[in-house]
Every structure is written in structure tokens, then in C-alpha cells.
């Protein structure tokens, strides 16, 4: 029987280290009887979904500070002169 620590490790690093079929079965058995690990899994899945939609997000706040904008303008104008 896997410990909660082992199950959590597998679930947290699922993308990088996909569990073997046997391991998946062990995890599934553990999840059947452990509500804490089920909650951990649910929250990790929700975190992934949140991060995925956050990656798509573009907005304008905070805006580019004026000094930085001026530096960028100067850099781009310099390209023209080359």
C-alpha cells in the first residue's frame, strides 16, 4: 500500500514523471479509501486549470513605466540608424 506522501509525489509530478500502469492502479486503490489524497488531487487539477487559463491571459495592467518606454523608444530608433 502506498503512503499518502508517495501518492502526493506521483500526483504532483504527474506531467514530468507519468506513473506506470501498475503505479496508477496502486494510486487508484489508495484514492478509493483516502479522502485527503482525493482532495489533494482535486486541488492539484484545479491549480493546473487555473495556471493554464492564466497563461492565456493578456491585459494592460500594470502599464509600461514611462522611463522604460523612453529607453525602448531610443533602442528602436537606434536600430534605424544602423
Amino acid at each position: 500500500m502506498l503512503t499518502c506522501r508517495e501518492v502526493s509525489r506521483s500526483l504532483t509530478l504527474q506531467t514530468e514523471a507519468p506513473p506506470t500502469l501498475y503505479r496508477q492502479l496502486q494510486i487508484r486503490l489508495h484514492l478509493l479509501i483516502c479522502h485527503n489524497c482525493r482532495r489533494n488531487r482535486r486541488q492539484l487539477q484545479a491549480l493546473n486549470a487555473l495556471l493554464a487559463s492564466e497563461t492565456q491571459t493578456t491585459d494592460h495592467a500594470p502599464s509600461l513605466p514611462e522611463p522604460a518606454k523612453a529607453r525602448l523608444r531610443a533602442k528602436l530608433e537606434a536600430v534605424n540608424k544602423d
Binding site: 493578456t58 491585459d59 494592460h60 495592467a61 500594470p62 502599464s63 509600461l64 522604460a68 518606454k69 525602448l72 523608444r73 528602436l76
Partner: peptide
């Protein structure tokens, strides 16, 4: 591009 999209790129 800087004028129109600079803020968005910077925030991102």
C-alpha cells in the same frame, strides 16, 4: 507596436 502593444507586452 511599442505605442499600441507595449503595455500589454510588459504586463504579460
Amino acid at each position: 507596436w511599442l505605442e499600441e502593444h507595449g503595455d500589454m507586452l510588459y504586463a504579460y
